[in-house]
Amino acid sequence: MRLDLLTAMNAERAARRAAVLVTALEGGGQRLVREAEIARDALADAIVPQLRSGKSGTVEAPSGRYFLEIHLPPPRIVVTGAVHISQALVPMAKLLGYDITVIDPRTAFATPERFPDVKLLAEWPDEALPKVGLDNWTAFVALTHDPKIDDPALEAALASGCFYVGALGSRKTHGRRVESLKKRDVSDDAIARIHAPIGLDIGAASPSEIALAILAEITLRLRRGPEAKP
């Protein structure tokens, strides 16, 4: 491997962007495909499913056999709302390998006693989110039911290309939320990306079951992309 290739690959990983090192197994040629270049790459049909699986592997293409070394940033979940559902969501998300952060400016909710061993920011989203740094490998979940907290965070999540954006609330609540986001000049296309009602429809009744439904929906979007049906 050329040193410049290794350096470039490490830089992409440090910046939390996906990268694929393509090695031709016959001939030994090597190149780096960055996240933004994947769609138009000659091996896109092979790279995209490999990337979704999150695993490196050998692929056959008309031009030969290639080893695709997949580098994905560790996926994250950012939640607004230090609420009951979040208390179930945090340990479940950790078990699934997510790095999770909870944001809630209401200090009565955001206490270390209620949320031990997790990144907890008792701040408004406009202060907290720039520090957290939302990106393509982050899922954002709005759980406060309070538009003053959730709406600015949803706007930021939609603008940051989060792979999943979900918001808790009935269809009626979501209807009011849509009107408020439109007033904030959020586009219809962006609003349509919000998963609401949140979570896969598994008949979830308790806070833990709602957390499970949310995590199942996040997993679906992470592994199968934005269009796939459950």
Binding site: L3, L6, T7, M9, N10, R13
Partner: peptide, 10 residues
Amino acid sequence: VLATAERWRK
């Protein structure tokens, strides 16, 4: 490991 490979080479 990969970051270390880069550092070693440099």
